[in-house]
Nucleic acid binder design. Structure first.
Length: 276
DNA sequence: AGACGATGCGGAC
DNA sequence: TCCGCCTCGTCTT
């Protein structure tokens, strides 16, 4: 589940547990225990796109990217300081009554807080879709750069240097809601359509921050307990929830995109409003 | 029990 | 554009 909404949800919960408390355990894969941070207090936990940052006093920050397989787990702090759990974890930290253990992460590192702005991964991120009022104009501008405007809109909006936090589930869901065929190149869309794509992404993702399970179909449109929670994602062959046409799947740059061939037409390149 | 596919990313071609 | 990652939940045998 690690798209931006998942990471932001974790950051919020982790912050409530850890901020203002002193570390009683910290271990980072490949680094091991960190004597310099013994007893240091946790100043802030934040998410930037799909990256999680934990800032400590004394000028250090932990950066974690879960990739596809990474997980965070929250458990009661163990009396022994969790040395055993820490030994094989990607990252392990305790401050106060709860311990946070990360397994299977794609990248974990301790970075000097002052160097974060120049970090090769973080510095290239586009504006975060989960900011309270994200910079939509900047996202649209980035999507119109030479390297992006000729790409399929589906792959473009997944690019973390255009906008950060959006992943494969929202990619399909947002384009369905906006009625845009995923294979259309960015330059075939009106600027207004791109704005709506990012605005809808922001809304869907923000709404899901407070939910346990990600969903995009409103509860009022889900008559049964097992009604689909997502419009099209992973629903290949099943009826579109709006028009009953079979949901189709397209592989773009190795990733599946799900869409409704009736609701999202290729020839809707002639869309409302001005064409770029 | 085993096969399959996945939420993400980067490197190889 | 494609593949590998060696992990885990879900579905099939």
């Amino acid at each position: 589940m690690p798209e931006g909404d998942t990471i932001h949800r974790i950051a919020r919960r982790m912050g409530k547990d850890l901020v203002g408390r002193s570390l009683t355990a910290l271990a980072v894969q490949e680094v091991g225990a960190v004597p310099e941070l013994e007893g240091a207090s946790v100043e802030k936990v934040e998410a930037r796109g799909k990256h999680l940052l934990v800032h400590f006093e004394r000028g250090w920050s932990l950066r974690v990217h879960l990739g596809m397989k990474g997980r965070w787990r929250r458990t009661p702090a163990s009396p022994g300081g969790g040395r055993h759990a820490a030994s094989r974890a990607s990252a392990y930290l305790t401050a106060g009554p709860f311990a946070w253990t990360c397994a299977g992460a794609y990248q974990v590192e301790l970075v000097r807080t002052g160097h974060l702005s120049a970090h090769p991964r973080l510095s290239r991120l586009g504006p975060d879709l989960l900011a309270p009022s994200p910079d939509i104009a900047a996202m649209v501008r980035r999507a119109s750069f030479p390297g992006h405007r000729d790409r399929a809109v589906a792959t473009c909006i997944m690019d973390q240097t255009v906008a950060s936090g959006l992943g494969n589930v929202y990619k399909s869901e947002v384009l369905f809601l906006e009625g845009i065929h995923p294979a259309l190149p960015v330059h075939a869309l009106a600027q207004n359509d791109m704005e709506k794509v990012f605005e809808t992404a922001h809304k869907l993702m923000t709404d899901n921050l407070s939910r346990r399970r990600r969903e995009t179909v409103p509860l009022t449109l889900r008559p049964w307990a097992n009604s689909p929670r997502l419009w099209v994602y992973r629903r290949e062959g099943d009826p579109c929830l709006r028009c009953r046409t079979a949901v189709a799947r397209l592989v773009q740059e190795g990733r599946s995109t799900y869409f409704c061939p009736s609701c999202q037409r290729r020839d809707q390149g002639q869309r409302t409003g001005t064409r770029e």
